[in-house]
Write a protein that binds this DNA or RNA. Structure first.
Lengths: 134, 134
DNA sequence: AACTCCACGGATGAGTATATGCGCTGAGTA
DNA sequence: TACTCAGCGCATATACTCATCCGTGGAGTT
């Protein structure tokens, strides 16, 4: 349902959202998020190519969140790493499960899936920042 | 959230529940459930050790559901193959997430998790059988 | 007893997600 | 220009799940 990589991506974006406007080096992010540095580079690269993040090479360089993406739902991020996810079939693929012959789990799973997708689409990247109460 | 193996186990039990009292050979079950025969044997073995299934060696032998387990929730089966699942932490492990400082996703995920566990505990192995309306 | 069916078990292989290493290049500094 | 920092990309290693192979032995048949 959620790969390690997807989790990482969210954690990275959360960390970046905590430091708006700042350029954070890969090593810094790796340390803060506890993600292996080399692997993190790969993830950040994909995030960059998809426009979630901007990067700066050289001395003082690093990564920063693109301000424009603060409002986009994290579903977009997840989809990037998990692929489009075909949940057309039923969880347990118990047997043919369509409208006519729903398996005993059909409705239940529908509920789970819905609340999951709802979570992903209602939370934005901006929301990932730690909201420090005043 | 759910491994291939766990799915298989449910499918197997569903098939056995469809044929109560019958001894089905491994090959038969493999064919019906589309699970690789050799791998299926392993899963059935674990199910046997845990008392979900009884087996009969030799000619005419095979596997059958233990009648007593018709009422047990499929959560027990899943737990057997997925391990106890420690969902104590939050999905994205975004950072420290406890009652005091819940992460932005905390409540949402709680809802997802609850409806999932509810599904697993409200459906019994007996429910997996195809209920053919008269 | 010889034979066949089929569950059991350990060892081994394939595939994929995860993780690492290393050399390259651009960007700033002295 | 020489030097260092840090992103970039490719090739490779590790881990884990999923799957297969092969041999053993019990249970019934002839």
């Amino acid at each position: 349902m959620l790969s390690h990589t997807g989790r990482y991506a969210i954690r990275i974006l959360g960390h970046l959202a905590d430091h708006p406007g700042e350029m954070l080096s890969g090593t810094e992010i790796a340390g803060a998020t506890r993600i292996p540095a080399n692997y993190l580079a790969k993830i950040l690269n994909q995030l960059r190519k998809r426009g979630f993040v901007e990067s700066q090479k050289g001395w003082g360089g690093g990564f920063a969140l693109r301000p424009a993406v603060l409002g986009v739902p994290i579903a977009d991020v997840i989809d990037l790493f998990e692929g489009p996810q075909d949940h057309s079939g039923c969880v347990f693929e118990l047997r043919e499960c369509d409208g006519q012959h729903p398996c005993p789990l059909h409705e239940h799973w529908e509920k789970v899936r819905t609340s999951y997708r709802e979570m992903l689409s209602s939370i934005t990247i901006g929301n990932l920042a730690t909201s420090r109460a005043p």
